[in-house]
Write a protein that binds this DNA or RNA. Structure first.
Lengths: 207, 207
DNA sequence: TATTATAATACACATATGTGGTATAAGTCA
DNA sequence: TGACTTATACCACATATGTGTATTATAATA
């Protein structure tokens, strides 16, 4: 945000070396096994120098995460409620696309396997963006909008995350459709849809 | 779960001392500033002994969290969908009641300010319990139930958590009602409710 | 109570951490 | 280029970590 660009080339070089080393180590072992000495050795800097920029490993992670979220935000573009909430998968699709291309370097950090802080940062960003979009189109109470979007966005991301980390039991269409119905028409909408499905396909296909 | 009760009194005494010391330290300083030596000193045990039971601080936390979730689960009782989803606040109310009474000792651990792993354990527990209740009452696809409940429970807890950690902008009734409507009738239900509200109270009270 | 099993301690060691002080190298800028 | 500023390196130290090995203390139980 208020990132006054570094003037000194040494600083840029050092920070680049630290982050590069960290990323490389992350691809080799678990984050909890990475020591500051590891980073300093690989980056070929003095261990002390590390401390002049970061208080610990977690700060490096935090910095990279913030940049990732910024990258997401800029690439994601504006949220189109009509399109995105009727097909929530499109949001998720765009997010993963960014991960898989531009930022594949940080794949290990981003793979969403247990990286809670990054996910919550993304959720916050999505809530803010969609709140903006929502209030510009629909007249509704600000506090209610917070509740609605906090509920829907968090729930949506949680479902995709669960799906991501599981054996992908459901099809992506099933997920996308169910979330969409849940958002617009709630549980009664899902029941309705299930009833129609049973009519069309016969009940033996269900449970 | 498969907790074969400890036979040796020494073991019980040591583990009790460790956990007691940890809880005390937690009430005094941030969890990241607690060292194993701190615990060993306060518990008056050899540092080595700590390692024979826990590989690190995080394991102590994990063990306590699991017990807390078990306590929640047993006190929470069965989930009554009719009651609990029409008034989701009741679930939350019962959860916080447990925190504030039986388990106040671990208040610092549970205060939900950033304790992600505990929250996610609770969410998982709630999803499992309510899935059981749901499928016993309503005939629906198992995989769809996973999506619906993952979405709804995660979203619900997230809203309460956000409310908990914020300045409690909304009233608890507002939250409870909005989540309930979102669950049963979705966003269209909320819009309907907002429209009625405007009719009754006049639009100048909104935004 | 005496025997046996093992939990806990005492001690040691290699490595990691955080931090201080001083010297050197590399940048910036006139 | 030369004078300055400061980032980084080098060295040092107190403490923390994880893990050995040998010894002592304490519990289970015959």
């Amino acid at each position: 945000m208020e990132e006054k660009k570094t003037v000194d080339r040494r600083v840029r070089k050092t920070k680049r070396a630290i982050r590069h080393a960290f990323a490389k180590l992350l691809s080799q072992k678990d984050i909890n096994d990475i020591t500051i000495r590891d980073i300093a050795d690989l980056a070929d800097i003095n261990r002390k120098t590390f401390y002049s920029y970061y208080s610990g490993i977690h700060q490096v992670v935090d910095e990279i995460e913030n940049e990732v979220v910024l990258a997401f935000e800029s690439v994601l573009g504006d949220i189109d409620l009509k399109r995105d909430l009727k097909n929530p998968h499109s949001i998720f699709e765009r997010l993963t696309a960014i991960i898989n291309t531009d930022l594949e370097f940080y794949g290990h950090l981003l793979s969403m396997h247990g990286n809670v802080s990054l996910v919550s940062k993304i959720v916050t960003m999505l809530i803010n963006k969609s709140k903006e979009a929502l209030l510009s189109q629909i007249e509704m109470d600000d506090k209610i909008a917070d509740i609605v979007l906090g509920y829907a966005i968090t729930g949506m991301i949680a479902v995709y995350q669960q799906w991501f980390n599981s054996d992908r039991l459901q099809s992506i269409e099933e997920i996308s459709e169910t979330i969409s119905i849940m958002f617009f028409h709630g549980f009664s909408g899902v029941l309705e849809q299930q009833k129609n499905y049973r009519k069309t396909h016969g009940s033996e296909e269900l449970r």
